[in-house]
């Protein structure tokens, strides 16, 4: 509490120590699984079976990583997860780009070019963010099949754009809502049209919200499993599906170290984004949840 001054006495010091201890204990709680994942991924299977999962590797080895990337068996093929990693990238980049652009335009229209019923339209689009995706699985698989892109990365791009528009529109709409209308009106008086205003006035000031939207979309789409498993289970599967296949395979010896290496690889992009731009990530969390 920023405003309270401290009057130091031994009682207060005790609580201070207890406070920091508690915080550190929880930090350990949150870090432990990650630590275990990393540590396990550098051990040999023998060491895993004999030793303590929390112990550092006695003999560090990068074998599991090489295997996870290049030779582990996922489903029917044994080429590691690298192909699926690229699938994820091929899916995420277009999906994030398209949904962000659409979201920006939508937010712009809904706030600066209001028309009758705009609240309803926004509400309808907003509700789409919250539906359980199980409700669209059946029809979507039909549609993708008919379009010939079932099982393909392109199909996933369509799916993620479709269900990502709601959030990106929400973010931009809330952001542009607070953007002063006077600037737009002044530009209109100066003779600028719809697109020019967007291009020259709205977009240049949209830096923060673009970052938030991109990070949010990237994280959600990269981490998605349901759509990937439903619509691209084979060769075109994204990283998450491949990871699950790898880890859940019931045949043969469970190579825990390889599983852990694969999991870290899968987690790496979103973790990196979080570490680098965590502030924007949190903003996205807040924007998407507290405001309606």
């Amino acid at each position: 509490m920023a405003e309270m001054t401290r009057y130091d006495d031994s009682g207060a010091r005790f609580w201070r120590v207890a406070l920091y201890t508690t915080l550190i204990v929880f930090a350990v709680f949150y870090l432990l699984p990650l630590f275990v994942m990393l540590v396990t991924s550098f051990k040999s299977l023998d060491e895993i079976r004999q030793g303590n999962m929390l112990a550092l590797p006695v003999q560090w080895t990068i074998e599991p990583w090489l295997k996870a990337w290049g030779t582990a068996c996922v489903g029917l093929t044994c080429e590691g997860i690298h192909g699926y990693f690229w699938n994820s990238i091929k899916m995420v980049v277009p999906a994030v780009t398209i949904s962000t652009i659409l979201g920006a335009l939508n937010g712009y229209v809904l706030t600066k070019w209001r028309f009758r019923g705009h609240k309803w339209i926004f509400a309808l689009m907003l509700f789409g963010c919250f539906i359980p995706f199980q409700i669209v699985l059946i029809p979507m698989s039909q549609v993708l099949g008919k379009l010939g892109i079932a099982g393909d990365t392109a199909g996933l791009v369509l799916v993620h754009v479709t269900y990502g528009i709601g959030f990106s529109t929400l973010f931009f709409r809330n952001y542009y809502e607070a953007f002063p209308n006077e600037l737009v009106k002044a530009a209109m008086i100066d003779g600028a049209g719809f697109f020019r205003i967007f291009w020259r006035i709205m977009l240049p000031s949209s830096g923060p919200i673009i970052v938030v939207t991109v990070i949010w979309q990237f994280t959600n789409i990269w981490n998605d499993f349901l759509f990937g498993a439903s619509f691209a289970a084979g060769e075109g599967a994204p990283m998450t599906v491949a990871l699950n296949n790898l880890v859940s395979s019931s045949t043969g010896v469970k190579e825990y170290n390889v599983h852990m290496a694969a999991a870290v690889i899968a987690a790496f992009p979103t973790l990196l984004v979080y570490v680098v731009a965590g502030r924007y990530f949190v903003r996205g969390l807040m924007a998407g949840s507290v405001k309606g």
């Binding site: 949150y30 990650l34 981490n223 699950n244 979103t270 973790l271 979080y274």
Partner: peptide
């Protein structure tokens, strides 16, 4: 940070 991870 766990929020940044996939549930998988």
């Amino acid at each position: 940070y766990p929020m940044a991870l996939s549930f998988i």
